[in-house]
């Protein structure tokens, strides 16, 4: 909680306490702790004098503003038609097998969350996945597992 108060203080220092500060604050919280919990949403509502429902409404609109706990690394595999045609199912199966999770779940060691995403804008180089902010295009199953191993080796 203390972290979140600090984030709010930092961001409102730049953007003020107007409603326009809402998105930057929510993004900053997610960047730091990967998701927004109930208390975070309330803290933001209080700081900007908004209703809690409005803050929740905004957060729930954006796929990248998670409101449930996520692992340290969030994997998003593009599920839209070009990547589907290029074989995204094989990528997802490979990741599920490697991490022992299903799409939507977080690994037991809390290191990874596997999600599917709408179009990531890399249709010409599908299938594609995003790990945190890093894009990995032109995947096949082996390549995807190799990339995951690099993340697994980090602590």
């Amino acid at each position: 909680m203390a972290d979140v108060q600090q984030i709010i203080k930092d961001v409102t220092g730049i953007y003020g306490k107007e409603r326009k500060a809402l998105m930057p604050i929510l993004q900053a919280v997610v960047k730091t702790k990967n998701y927004l919990d109930d208390q975070d949403l309330i803290a933001v509502a209080k700081a900007l004098d908004l209703s809690a429902a409005e803050v929740f409404g905004t957060a729930s609109f954006y796929t990248f503003l998670d409101t449930v706990p996520r692992g340290k690394n969030v994997i998003r595999v593009c599920k839209t038609i070009s990547c589907h045609m290029a074989g995204k199912d094989a990528i997802i199966h490979a990741i599920e097998d490697t991490l022992k999770v299903k799409t939507g779940e977080t690994s037991v060691d809390k290191k990874f969350t596997l999600l599917s995403a709408n179009c990531l804008g890399w249709c010409h180089k599908g299938p594609v996945m995003l790990i945190n902010d890093q894009v990995y295009p032109e995947l096949n199953a082996e390549k995807a597992i190799e990339i995951l191993q690099k993340y697994q080796e980090e602590d």
Binding site: D38, L41, S51, A52, A53, E54, F56, S60
Partner: peptide
Amino acid sequence: GVSALAVAYKGDHQKISTFLDHPLVEVV
């Protein structure tokens, strides 16, 4: 000026929701 209800989620999941979809008796 209460905003107990807001628009949440998007697309075909869009709904009119209270904070965290709590029942009306538990919100403002």
